[in-house]
Structure formats: structure tokens, C-alpha cells
Simulated scan of single mutants.
Amino acid sequence: MPLVNVKVIEGVFTEAQKAEMVTALTDAMVGVEGEAMRPVTLVVIEEVKSGDWAIGGKRLTTQDVKELAAGAPAG
């Protein structure tokens, strides 16, 4: 059984966006594995608490990620 585990910072993605991720990732895996694997392809989305995720020694919050997505410079 294939398992795709996605970690995101809490509060960044809506329920609709997470559903879209599940569909797109399942479709991508089925594209590699074959259609017979669709019923057993698992996608898990885990939300990490805001501030518990760090890159380059800088903790990221939900707001940081939303600002990055909006095109604000990092830092």
C-alpha cells in the first residue's frame, strides 16, 4: 500500500485545498503505479503547530507562510 505523507503548517490550507491535495497526490501515484492501486493509495495530511516548523534556524508561523504565499519577501 503506497503512503504519501504531507506535512503542512496548521491553518495555512483550507479544507477544500487539502481535499485537492489528496486528489492530486492520489492521481500522481496512480499515474506511476497503475489504476489498480487507487483503492489502496493512502494520503495523510499532518498539520504541524504554527511555530513548530523551522527552516534555516527561523521558526515559521502560519502568518509567515501566508505572507510568503502572498508574495511578501522572506525574512
Rank of each mutant, 00 (worst) to 15 (best):
G31F: 09
K7R: 11
G34Q: 13
G11D: 05
P73R: 03
A70P: 03
E35L: 12
K66D: 05
E15G: 06
G56Y: 12
P2T: 00
G57V: 09
P73M: 00
E35M: 08
F13K: 10
A72T: 12
E46S: 08
L3V: 00
V44P: 07
N5M: 00
T14I: 03
V4T: 13
P39T: 13
V44Q: 15
E15Y: 04
E67I: 01
V8G: 11
E67C: 02
D52I: 01
L3H: 09
R59I: 02
G11C: 04
M37N: 11
A72D: 06
P39L: 15
M1T: 00
A36E: 15
A54G: 14
E20D: 15
E33Q: 12
V32D: 13
G71D: 09
V44F: 13
M21C: 03
N5L: 00
E20S: 09
T61V: 02
N5E: 07
L25H: 09
R59P: 00
E15K: 14
T23H: 07
G57R: 03
V12C: 09
T61H: 04
T23G: 01
S50W: 04
V12P: 09
V4N: 12
A16R: 08
V12F: 08
V48N: 02
M21L: 11
T41P: 14
V30D: 10
Q17T: 00
V4W: 08
E35G: 05
M21V: 01
G51P: 04
V40W: 14
R38P: 09
G56A: 13
L3F: 06
R59M: 09
D27A: 12
M1A: 05
A28Q: 09
G51D: 05
D52Y: 10
G71C: 06
T26Q: 07
M37Q: 13
M29Q: 13
A54N: 06
E67H: 10
